[in-house]
Design a protein around this nucleic acid. Structure first.
Length: 560
DNA sequence: AAAAAAT
């Protein structure tokens, strides 16, 4: 796997972190004599490391670090088609929304962070970054909707890092056993936490800020050791964090920043109690005292947003970044009517055809989504025994197996990955040529997430769905979505959808029906809208927003 | 109903 410059230094850094121990050797919460992390470490801040070739700012390309998931792999850089998102619809609402910026230079993120941004070859902020960073730097709470890969991680990491570097916080309690992070980033899957951790480490390089990750499925010992060396930013999944909190190995009383990634998913049934326990029932400072940033890849349902916002946020700003209509062309979506019993042989046909079309002897990466963990295992077995090298990732596999499967897939060693929805969100897997929805999800947002694993970063992608009568709940939403993204909708699907919609059956429409607009439910406050954020003139739109053929904001995007 | 997440 490609090892980026930042990965290499990050590893070196691990051997050096005993420099940083004074993190915890400090007196109980008092006021100001806090030593910012970048001063703890006896500078020379950023003296040695070579700044790799720095591409001059360009309007057409923004280099991206692909964020190595699964413990360091995949840090491939890829280029995002920037022109495609100059015209992305953006909505903000709330009191006194700070105006967006057009360049990183306009924001004072500090020298160290600026240098790291250049090292990561981030040339120009993405739309979500242009809006979210000034809002966060302004100390405001934020609810942001933007798809993964749109630069969300940086959008919440930059202000957190900058805030910690500039902050004058009370000293951390002196405590040998307990770690006192200043920022907490929660995410719903282990692999996603890994990915965020990797990125946050790159952004924090040589700032003295310590980023530690904690997630389950792996021995707790090493994570405890890392925590004891000191932690400023803790990235975690809820289960393991709760465990650490109960053991009093982590205290949240110093938390200044709380970020929830995939916030809508985090409040799913089953997750919510864990999150609430962490946020409301431990020792975390209340909302308004800490700064809270919620990021969601899809537009959360109305009641979810309201609950989230009213419980976790204080005087927040709502930000929604639309999807790129034009990039939809990069994903060709097909739907085929396949009976349950024919699915396997049909998949086989697809894979054969793909192999015959041959991308230069190398089989293109194919990601196959199924509904159940059991189904994933049995399909993997069947594929393997039929001569198609496949592996699988789902929640019943050990963490080791999961990470191995991901690596093996990414490297092309096993070019077919059978996955449950654990892999649908957030995970950055470059070079997926084909996404097969072997089993369609019930929720159209999950479909959008899944197909978004392909067609990334300017590559074309193919998404094939197997549809049968078990999927009628999604037919209307699927047909609408395909229509919106200029795909060919089979007549049989249109008919199916028409039956569903007759008499108000279209309940499972894209969450939030009118998609853009009307999603900040504090209708009484100001409502701004800007196209690409160039102007943030405070225009008031009627709820429903982008009705007038603007640019197809409901379509899925390739750069999700 | 399924998936994810602590041991």
């Amino acid at each position: 796997m490609t090892t980026s410059w930042a990965d290499a230094v990050a590893e070196n850094d691990d051997n050096n972190n005993n420099n940083n121990n004074n993190n915890n050797n400090q007196a109980p919460p008092a006021r100001p004599t806090y030593i910012p992390p970048h001063l703890r470490k006896n500078p020379p801040i950023l003296a040695n490391p070579p700044v790799p070739a720095y591409t001059a700012p360009s309007l057409s390309g923004n280099r991206y670090s692909g964020g190595g998931g699964g413990g360091g792999g995949g840090g491939e850089n890829f280029v995002i088609n920037f022109a495609a998102y100059e015209d992305i619809p953006v909505e903000t609402s709330g009191d006194n929304v700070p105006p967006p910026v057009n360049t990183f230079a306009e924001i004072d993120l500090g020298e160290a962070l600026n240098l790291n941004i250049r090292r990561c070859k981030y040339v120009k902020p993405t739309p979500v970054q242009r809006h979210a960073i000034p809002i966060s730097l302004g100390g405001r709470d934020l609810m942001a909707c933007a798809q993964t890969g749109s630069g969300k991680t940086a959008a919440f990491c930059f202000p957190i890092i900058s805030g910690i570097l500039n902050g004058k916080y009370a000293q951390k309690p002196r405590d040998m056993r307990t770690a006192y992070p200043l920022a907490l980033i929660l995410s719903p899957t282990r692999e996603l936490s890994c990915q965020i951790h990797e990125e946050a480490k790159k952004f924090s390089y040589q700032t003295g800020i310590r980023v530690v990750v904690a997630y389950g499925g792996t021995p707790v010992r090493e994570q405890l050791a890392e925590l004891q060396r000191g932690v400023d930013i803790l990235v975690a999944t809820p289960g393991r964090l709760n465990d650490l909190l109960e053991r009093a190995r982590v205290s949240l009383q110093m938390i200044r920043y709380l970020a929830l990634d995939e916030a809508d998913r985090m409040l799913d049934m089953g997750f919510e109690p864990q999150i609430r326990k962490i946020v409301e029932q431990m020792d975390m400072p209340p909302r308004g005292v800490r700064q809270t940033l919620l990021f969601s890849a899809t537009f959360p349902k109305r009641d979810t947003v309201q609950r989230l916002a009213s419980d976790f946020l204080a005087n927040y700003i709502f930000l929604a970044v639309g999807r790129v209509g034009s990039s939809t062309d990069l994903i060709v979506q097909r739907v085929e009517f396949v009976q349950e019993s024919d699915k396997r042989s049909h998949l086989m046909d697809l894979l054969h055809a793909q192999r015959d079309n041959g991308s230069h002897g190398k089989q293109a990466l194919t990601l196959v989504f199924v509904e159940t963990k059991k189904g994933a295992d049995s399909l993997e077995y069947w594929l393997c025994s039929n001569g198609f090298p496949a592996t699988t990732i789902h929640g019943d596999r050990s963490q080791q197996e999961r990470e191995h499967a991901l690596r093996s897939f990414k490297s092309g060693q096993t070019p077919i990955l059978v996955a449950t929805d654990v892999a649908a969100r957030g995970l950055d897997i470059p070079h997926v040529a084909h996404v097969v929805n072997f089993d369609l999800p019930n929720d159209i947002d999950d479909y959008v997430h899944r197909i978004g694993r392909t067609g990334r970063a300017g590559n074309t992608g193919l998404a094939t769905a197997f549809f049968n009568d078990n999927n009628s709940s999604i037919s209307k939403a699927l047909a609408d979505l395909m229509q919106e993204s200029n795909q060919e909708v089979p007549v049989w699907l249109q008919k199916h959808a028409a039956i569903r919609s007759y008499g108000g059956g279209g309940r499972n429409r894209r969450s939030g029906g009118g998609r853009f607009g009307g999603r900040d439910f504090r209708r009484d406050s100001g409502f701004n809208r800007g196209s690409g954020g160039a102007d943030n003139s405070g225009n008031t739109t009627s709820p429903g927003g982008y009705g007038s053929g603007n640019n197809n904001p409901g379509a899925p995007s390739a750069w999700d």
